[in-house]
Amino acid sequence: MSGHHTLSVLVENKAGVLARVAQLFSRRGYNIYSLAVAPTDDDRFSRITIVVDVESSPLEQITKQLFKLINVVKISELAPDQAVERELMLLTVTASPDARSQVIELVQVFNGTIVDVGHDQLTVMLAGQPVKLDDFEDLMRAYGIVELQRTGRVALPRLERQAPRLRSVKGKAG
């Protein structure tokens, strides 16, 4: 994941906005690594969380070009250590009777949920940090992954840790 950056893009909730964003990326030769879109609490706006492959182009140019889209209202770059990032995965894994208990054990270790059970397959839901999903995916590979779907990450800026009073004192001193 080095060379990837997360952009949180607040856009007007209007027809065709996602097409404009996606088209800008392809037109300018940037790569999208993952993309998640959903309305915000204010139904006039949606938030698009884009993970970009920055090796394809400087991040600054991507954000400037994005900001030129009329429907883009705000862009925040979320550096990994300054953001809370989560992703959801659905994964169907082969779990024949003799392996089933091992799989269930691993699901429990990762705080996953079994959402569907078949004759010799299980479907698991797992939400968490993207890297945790990567680990789980690696472990399941040994049993045979039948299908896998990840949502792409969503992110919000990390909150201030210091108490407000301490912060304001520091602000005055500094």
């Binding site: 027809a15 065709g16 097409a19 404009r20 088209q23 800008l24 037109r27 009329i70």
Partner: peptide, 16 residues
């Protein structure tokens, strides 16, 4: 039309 001209206009609208 709006799809085709998206990348060659500053902005475009389909009136609904």
């Amino acid at each position: 039309t709006t799809g085709i001209t998206m990348s060659v206009t500053k902005h475009n609208w389909l009136i609904t």
